Simulated scan of single mutants.
Amino acid sequence: MTLAASRQSIPDDIWAKMQGRSWHSDRGCLPRKNLVFVTLPYLNFSGATVEGHLIVHLDVADDVMIIFTEIHQSGKFRIEKMSLVDDYDGDDDKSMFDNNTSAYNCRLTRGGATMSSHGRGIAIDINPVQNPWVKGSETAPANGVNYNTPDKRDAAFRRGAHGIVMPDDVVVASFARKGWKWGGVFTTRKDYQHFSEDGM
């Protein structure tokens, strides 16, 4: 059976699980009606087609389905896992350390005081271990240290390591066609895992 991308309103059991994890009543989080539960096909690290789930803003849900369908159909990129951050109690660090691809999480920017693009439902992080956030001597997640410089990333890619986002690959191209920006080109930091509709 061929798996296809789909979308639906957030099911009641998922919404209940989000409370106090990725959604908080006291943080000005998006209302439920603005969020969509998306099911997406992807190739896992073993090369099998499986289904993953993300929550994104209603306005970008169709684009996200098109993007991940393109990535999957290319057969050229693998994702280790794709689960809601609620499976990690809404803890972004735990999700990243487990190399989980995720999207919505009502949280502030790293080290900032404003709502992140994840909190607005318009950002996705892909394979955080192979595509870490890097600023100066900091790497997040810490187990992404073997992929935190262009030289290390290129060497691992040439060895055939799975899940590394590269500048000219299908992942960057598919997101770019929908106007999304890649954090791998940020100047004050590198956020190789990060794609966002607003470029933030």
Rank of each mutant, 00 (worst) to 15 (best):
Ala155Met: 11
Gly183Asn: 01
Asp63Leu: 04
His24Glu: 03
Phe186His: 06
Tyr88Cys: 06
Asp13Gly: 04
Asn34Val: 10
Asn34Ala: 15
Arg189Ser: 08
Gly119Lys: 00
Gly160Cys: 14
Gly136Asn: 11
Ser22Arg: 05
Glu70Gln: 15
Pro167Glu: 15
Gly28Leu: 05
Phe195Asp: 04
Asp13Glu: 08
Ser102His: 07
Arg32Glu: 02
Tyr42Phe: 15
Gly20Gln: 11
Glu197Ala: 13
Thr109Trp: 07
Ala61His: 05
Ser174Gly: 13
Thr49Glu: 09
Ala113Pro: 01
Ser102Met: 09
Ala155Glu: 10
Pro128Met: 14
Pro132Gln: 06
Ala61Thr: 09
Tyr88His: 09
Phe97Gly: 00
His194Cys: 01
Glu70Tyr: 11
Ile122Gly: 01
Ser137Val: 06
Asn146Gln: 08
Arg120Ile: 01
Ala103Pro: 14
Asp154Phe: 09
Lys76Tyr: 07
Gly28Ser: 09
Ile126Asp: 01
Val165Asn: 06
Thr114His: 13
Ser25Gly: 08
Phe97Ala: 11
Val85Trp: 02
Glu70Asp: 12
Asn105Thr: 09
Gly179Cys: 14
Gly136Val: 02
Gln130Ala: 13
Ile66Val: 14
Trp133Leu: 09
Phe68Pro: 05
Val171Trp: 06
Gly184Asp: 00
Asp26Asn: 15
Leu30Ser: 05
